[in-house]
Design a protein around this nucleic acid. Structure first.
Lengths: 264, 264
DNA sequence: CAGTGTTAGCGAACGGTGTTAACTTTGAAG
DNA sequence: CTTCAAAGTTAACACCGTTCGCTAACACTG
């Protein structure tokens, strides 16, 4: 038992495995570069292969299909985005949970604006495939898992704030009956992940969390898709105003929001 | 001058023009049917032509390209959606402006949920083409115009409510400086369209309008794209709760919101 | 070292796509 | 009846995702 090699731990990667992993990485990088530089329409297996000095069928040694390649790329980008948000949040030393949530939110919008093509791939999936809907609730695909990981960045920041300094939320009997049972289920799911302190959070906090997420999503999506262009040429002040509003709802003082505001 | 035929008014459509218009209509209908029944991936010129008993190149007599066909379809659907919202609103006789706004909002969500594929085509455009951004502000394409028409349905309902019974909005000096000038411009644009009473509306009302639209958009988009599925299996009560919340912000009593709620 | 099996990558091919060009048919107008 | 423009065809081009069969190169075993 003390012998390391006797266990079936990960054996050291062979040379072959290393170059294979490197190729997989290069394929994803090239795919993403094509997406960014030439748009989603111009991304094709043949274009990727051409860019790498090989032919399209060769890529099938690494991905079972074009869609699988995209799916894996999406999962990677969800992960990257989650990492970035956490990183930016931790880069503010000694920040209170309110500030940390604001930083996370602002970083999300900044990433979306800076990476509109990637954002489109992640958050404007054409239409969810029907099988995904029919899938059992806990059978999580790779995308689903990464998506969860991303979402949980906000979940953590939000409930960290709640634990630090609770804010007003609707009482249980103020929530529609149809919502209560669903929030109970979601809370239980999160409690399984984060421990029992989550189980003490009132259901109204989940309602507020979702409402905030809805607003943030709408804000960023509309900006990235240029759907606010009909009245706003510069969306940033509008975003900051909404952020301040959102923060106020969570008991975060405007001064905390303004402190981290990017200079312009 | 009194002679009708001497002016270049619309001459009576010839038989040729009528069958041509009918064909254009059929192409759009078939395209939409394919979109709904088989998904956006399966929509192709050849499939459309096949479905109509003709060949793909024949369609080029009616549309200069595949993209143009889609663009025109999108414009049509914006118009149809706008018509539907107005119709549903007018179907409630003697309703006060608050009720009318609620009905409009609810109808929008209902349409989106009932037509997810169409909704995806309208509101999750892959990524705005760069030329659209570079285009001068008042050069409006067909999509742009129809999109405006749709948006103005909400604009009208919102400012009708304001004119009927104003609600609290932030004062001008509470708005960020970067927003004031943009709202001034947008207000002037609307005043040109709706007359001078709009010019009297305070800028804060435009801020509130946009914030409401952001929230509604996020709500509906997240539902249609199944991005709330991670915690809600039935989104309707959540939508109704947000609608009530939104209405309260506009001074619409909860009783008014509940009155028109669909029975379940 | 020789032998062997696995793997990476290639070219050809199939059915599909949007699009163009050249041609035929059709129907309305002078 | 002639003429001419419009509608629709077939053939072709360049591209797409994907599969098949093949050739190398590689890693491991006797």
């Amino acid at each position: 038992m003390t012998d390391v090699s006797s266990r079936d731990e990960v054996p050291p990667p062979t040379r072959r495995e290393r170059v294979r992993a490197a190729t997989v990485q290069e394929i994803k990088q090239v795919t993403r570069r094509l997406l960014v530089e030439r748009g989603p329409q111009q991304v094709s297996l043949r274009a990727i292969a051409r860019e790498m000095g090989m032919t399209a069928p060769g890529l099938y040694r690494y991905f079972p299909s074009y869609d699988d390649l995209l799916v894996e790329l999406v999962a990677d980008m969800y992960g990257e985005l989650a990492d970035l948000l956490i990183e930016e949040r931790e880069a503010v030393p000694g920040a209170d949970p309110g500030c940390r949530l604001v930083v996370t939110t602002r970083a999300f919008r900044a990433w979306a604006v800076a990476h509109p093509r990637e954002y489109g791939l992640l958050f404007a999936s054409p239409v969810p495939s029907l099988k995904e809907i029919a899938a059992p609730p806990h059978s999580c695909s790779s995308v689903h898992l990464s998506g969860m990981r991303f979402g949980n960045v906000f979940v953590e920041a939000f409930f960290e704030l709640w634990g630090w300094r609770p804010f007003p939320v609707p009482a249980d009997d103020e929530l529609p009956g149809g919502l209560v049972s669903q929030f109970v289920g979601y809370r239980a799911e999160l409690a399984e992940l984060y421990g029992d302190e989550i189980a003490q959070v009132p259901l109204g906090a989940f309602h507020v969390f979702l409402a905030c997420w809805v607003r943030l999503y709408g804000l960023v999506a509309l900006e990235v898709f240029s759907h606010l262009h009909f009245c706003l040429t510069d969306v940033e002040p509008f975003f900051e105003a909404n952020l301040e509003d959102l923060a106020a709802q969570l008991g975060i003082p405007a001064e905390t929001v303004r402190r981290g505001r990017p200079v312009r």
